[in-house]
Design a protein around this nucleic acid. Structure first.
Lengths: 350, 350
DNA sequence: CTGAAAGCGCTAACAG
DNA sequence: CTGTTAGCGCTTTCAG
């Protein structure tokens, strides 16, 4: 498997009997080459199976037509779609993507940023569970156009793309209230996650207050989770059940938690949605295939990725940026896990 | 956002009062530099915030430490995990990954291969629904170490990584037979998909024959699908039901089809697994969260990606390849959608 | 319109 | 041990 010497533009030029400058001009569709020479060059390229060396080109033009995409984990459905959006937008502008999963580990994020900068990517798109200042510093230090997705950060050094977690949570809870629920519990995300954890909780609280449904003891129906997982959702629901509080609905900070919640309810003889309604967050595919299908908050994942790449490409193309911080629209997807409070009685009797 | 001139190794050398050669040696941890100069260079690097230009380096050493990964769609759960495996293995050898989704479109596959070759990737990992000869030619033409995953291809020009779809299907059907089923239907994948479609069907047939369970009319219980989707599974099951054939189990060529099948059965009053057992293929997360959870064939997706990248890296490191074609182990994951044939009677009475 | 020549930033071979 | 130098393959002046 020896790497035979590739044919260079110089070789092509020789074969075509022209200078390498001319050959280059043909390659780049530049005007100002006689039709005859152009044909000769094109033929030589064809005959010799010439393939341009993008590395050499990049070194010269100081541009790689490559974007770095940093995410926690490509095996996570949420990020998959974001990446596909980014890839499609990048691809349409003839950019490629170097994909880097970091498991949201700050050290790996930083070393990844360094590596991407060394590889001279033209821009960066980043997602992280929790974007630490060190990471942000590294990003700034790299001096590349950067888009942050789902990261609470208003630094004008970055383009940011988000949904309003507060508003989304508020509306999710309002949806339950509209159905007639008055005692609504929440399985909150990790407190150190400002956006997905904190803000969804704030939205929940505000919705209750706005409708006069706040329990005497504030947050009596809130269980703080340490993770967004199925197991966490299951455990938190058990804790909620054990607290003997009365509730007819629960709003979970993630879909996995919602599914775990449904299971925990089921396991203690409660039915969804007949006894308890459940709402999730993110609109992952499990919500569609669960029994019952789960009502959830949809984030426009593909669009977030697409927009991020599009904006970066626009910056790189020298277009003026009107807006650096964007909030995209979420929407509530109503499925079978929510209904009117119905059979609360059965639960209370217990 | 002007791209200010980056500091070069030459600048570092000047500052440290040494030649670029020495600075380069320090950078590459090469021996033969006095401790004093090494320190001076290291300090200068630190002070000036020097960052190596990997593009320039690549041009010189003719190696980019980058692998191209070509897949149909990163938003598809199956590929996500493969990619994560590839990424992890690549990363451990200090390689990065350029990710390219092609939707399995031959034209896009070919143009992607060309682009990756131009970007001088050191190797390629490719997955496709249906690997056409044109694609394989383009790959060969690129002259890069290449690993094909889940592609029926025995060309020694490529490293290949597969499971045995035949054996996996055979065992899936045998699992049903072991439970006592004697009339087993199959929802087969698209016929033009040799590996996922054809070979799974062959495995099904062989298992029936081996156990003397072949129906009088061969393939009387086979419904050929044109896709692997939920909708296709639903439609095929309806067709099967309409045929008035008796069966107590169905083997679907994909998990999505299996889920569609369960739904179709349910919609016509049949229960899974009480009336009919269902087996899927791929072990996607929906099988875990469906009701009932679905018995399926697991492919070691992460491992396939990991191994592909590992082998490519080994080739690039000049290690001799003992085996170019690998068949990995699948396994049957037993879940709630399969059981003994039980209540067939209810169905027959209809 | 076109050829020659000067680098892009880095590594590696070569004299000292 | 170390500084100098010649490219890697391409683009882009700059004369002609």
């Amino acid at each position: 498997m020896e790497k035979e010497k590739a044919v260079r533009l110089l070789d092509v030029a020789h074969r075509a009997g022209v200078g390498v400058g001319t050959a280059s001009r043909v390659l780049n569709h530049e005007p100002g080459v006689s039709e005859e020479k152009r044909q000769r060059v094109l033929r030589a390229i064809e005959e010799m199976g010439y393939r341009r060396n993008a590395i050499a080109r990049s070194l010269k033009v100081n541009r790689t037509k490559t974007l770095g995409v940093i995410i926690p984990d490509i095996a996570n459905e949420f990020y998959c779609e974001v990446v596909r959006g980014a890839e499609d937008a990048a691809c349409s502008q003839h950019y490629n993507i170097i994909l880097c999963s970091t498991d949201s580990d700050t050290r790996r994020e930083i070393s990844t940023i360094t590596m991407l900068a060394e590889k001279q990517v033209d821009g960066v798109i980043m997602l992280s569970y929790e974007c630490r200042p060190e990471t942000l510093d590294a990003l700034k230090c790299a001096g590349l156009p950067t888009a942050l997705i789902s990261t609470l950060c208003t630094d004008d050094a970055f383009i940011t793309i988000n949904i309003s977690n507060f508003k989304a949570a508020y509306e999710a809870v309002e949806h339950l209230i509209a159905l007639g629920h008055r005692s609504i519990a929440m399985l909150a995300g990790p407190a150190n996650d400002i956006d997905g954890g904190e803000n969804r909780l704030l939205g929940y609280r505000d919705a209750l207050v706005a409708h006069g449904l706040q329990p005497r003891t504030p947050d009596a129906l809130v269980v703080q989770s340490s993770a967004y997982s199925y197991e966490a959702g299951y455990a938190c629901t058990q804790k909620l059940l054990a607290s003997q509080q009365v509730f007819t609905a629960v709003f979970a900070a993630s879909d996995h938690m919602a599914v775990g919640c449904v299971k925990a309810l089921w396991d203690s003889g409660l039915r969804v949605p007949e006894d308890i309604s459940v709402v999730g967050f993110d609109n992952l595919s499990i919500t569609e295939y669960s029994t019952p299908p789960i009502t959830t908050v949809n984030q426009p994942r593909y669009e977030m990725g697409r927009l991020a790449a599009q904006k970066i490409c626009a910056v790189l193309a020298g277009q003026p940026m009107e807006q650096r911080h964007m909030t995209l629209q979420h929407n509530i997807v109503c499925r079978g896990s929510t209904s009117v409070p119905g059979l609360l009685e059965r639960y209370v009797q217990k």
